[in-house]
Design a protein around this nucleic acid. Structure first.
Lengths: 328, 328
DNA sequence: CTGTTAGCGCATTCAA
DNA sequence: TTGAATGCGCTAACAG
């Protein structure tokens, strides 16, 4: 019996002969190890928990499926739960996953405070934070360089000759939203442009929020020939609002999104946007776990990912644009 | 010790007094039951496996998250895996989930044959098939009335006065695709219209396939004023192809999709489509498991769901259309 | 109603 | 290199 355990886990030397005998017996008996019993005896559940705000949305779906595939290829189980960006639910979900003795936790949490993470989680189990940098826990975070993404979006428009560039932001209380805006400001500064408060609207990362924000911008009467939206969903809403005003995209207004979500290819015209390499990030998270928890990988871990611009049809050079920027 | 087990599981009578004592002790010791040990002893893992082709795509994401929420509210864990519509991978994934002693399996499989399901699965563990009807296992299937959906799509156009209606189908080897087409034919017949082979193209349910199919239709030179696409992705592609030909939507061609995927709202104009109530179906799947496996629910189980039309901007009455249907 | 006992199926000592 | 014994933390049958 102990020998069978040894050949299954390769934990100790077994002579080639008995090893063969065991394997063939396993085959004829159609034996399958009971992974629950393995877990109990070894104190390892071979399962990792993944907590996301929701499954919908390209970002989380990609992260989930890439991580799951990588883990499954290594024989690990993926248990998932959703936290709905709600502080209580996120805490509950964490407790839920811990109660299943997950060996590690990959979590994308919006509502949990840095303090909770640092104080409550630190000794509970190995964990990894996605898309967020918790000060002091940088080595447990995998994130996007949002500031750079914001910079790239605006820089692209500036290089196309645009000068008056509006910006529709996500909730500035969220670090990713404020970092993206920071990048926008840095790009403006780099090109000697003043930042104009009246070309900025804070919104909520949702489609309807984007259309409301764009309506507000248009009503302000401040002219602009291009707009950066801090995510693709808001860009979709903004496009609706621009058209509702009788303006054309990109002739009257160039628009750049952020995330490179699938929907960005379905918009008309297809959306120029900043790629968020979430699939690679999900895979990297899985590798971090395989390496640090299961000692089962030598993969180099990258903690900060770099966004890149994806040019499509929604942004054109200022010269190509009509000379009637909104509000002019 | 046994008493503690009893208060945790409520499996047997415990006096209110000792019950309180146990609970308070649990609190002061910060005791958490080890769910792995519970599983081993009770031969119940309290986890249900969900197998989907992929996480991407609105259909699977909704199904997954709705089912997970319902199960988590009942204290069950959700382990998921992807099968990628590949027969071998789907079989592997099933073995993988079984090896974790899932108490039940909810599976959305494309590639597995009916025979495999009937012969290999039947005694392994309780399971539920999504979006497919396996003859003889109707009580283990939750599906959409695709035929009715196809009927509704075409009927809507017929009632708008369209008579020459093209149809872009999914792979007819798949039952859902052929059922949708059946519905289309039945609607035509109901309105006294002949079915015209030259207005039918079989494609692959993908965006690019849709645009190729539409190009082919346009080249055939057979006139039509409206088209039904068997899913929204193909509709997106078809819209591209229609525009590439210099035609307008919906003025020259009305278009109706199928699924009511999120992308349908991002298209321009927003896509009139047939709703696929996948979220409810996911929830229903979870309830089926709670009821039939955990005896933890009295929910009425519905096995066949009914699609309904969602009117948006991409289909208008024939009178409102221009009088130059493609190919005329 | 409560405590005692014997496994659940394995990994991991320790001897041999 | 292999086998025998012990225990992982719990549930379920049994006896009291």
């Amino acid at each position: 019996m102990a020998t069978v355990s040894r050949v299954i886990n390769g934990s100790s030397r077994v002579s080639e002969k008995t090893r063969e005998k065991v394997l063939s017996a396993m085959r004829t008996l159609n034996y399958r190890p009971n992974s629950i019993a393995q877990s109990l005896a070894s104190n390892r559940s071979n399962s990792v928990g993944i907590l996301v705000p929701q499954v919908h949305g390209p970002v989380f779906a990609s992260m989930l499926s890439e991580a799951e595939e990588e883990l499954r290829n290594a024989g690990k189980f993926t248990i998932f739960a959703t936290g709905l960006s709600d502080e209580i639910k996120e805490q509950e979900a964490i407790r839920f996953l811990i109660s299943r003795n997950c060996d590690a936790l990959i979590m994308h949490v919006d509502a949990l405070t840095d303090e909770f993470i640092k104080e409550q989680m630190d000794d509970a189990l190995p964990f990894l934070i996605m898309n967020r940098v918790v000060p002091g826990l940088e080595d447990k975070c995998i994130s996007l360089d949002n500031e750079r993404g914001g910079f790239e979006a605006t820089r692209t428009l500036l290089e196309m000759g645009h000068r008056r560039i509006a910006y529709i932001s996500g909730p500035l209380a969220w670090v990713d939203a404020s970092a993206r805006l920071e990048g926008h400001r840095r790009a403006l500064a780099a090109y000697g442009q003043d930042f104009d408060d009246r070309l900025l609207v804070e919104s909520n990362f949702k489609e309807f929020g984007g259309s409301e924000a764009m309506s507000k911008l248009l009503r302000r009467g401040r002219s602009f020939s291009a707009v950066v939206c801090a995510n693709d969903e808001m860009a979709a809403g903004a496009m609706d609002a621009i058209r509702a005003r009788g303006l054309s995209i990109p002739e009257d207004v160039s628009i750049v999104g952020f995330d490179n979500a699938p929907l960005s290819r379905y918009l008309y015209p297809k959306l120029t946007t900043v790629n968020y390499p979430i699939a690679e990030m999900g895979r990297m998270a899985a590798r971090w776990v395989l390496r640090n928890v299961y000692k089962d990988s030598e993969a180099e871990i990258r903690h900060v990912f770099r966004p890149t611009l994806v040019p499509r049809g929604s942004a054109i050079t200022a010269e190509g644009s009509r000379d009637d920027a909104p509000g002019k």
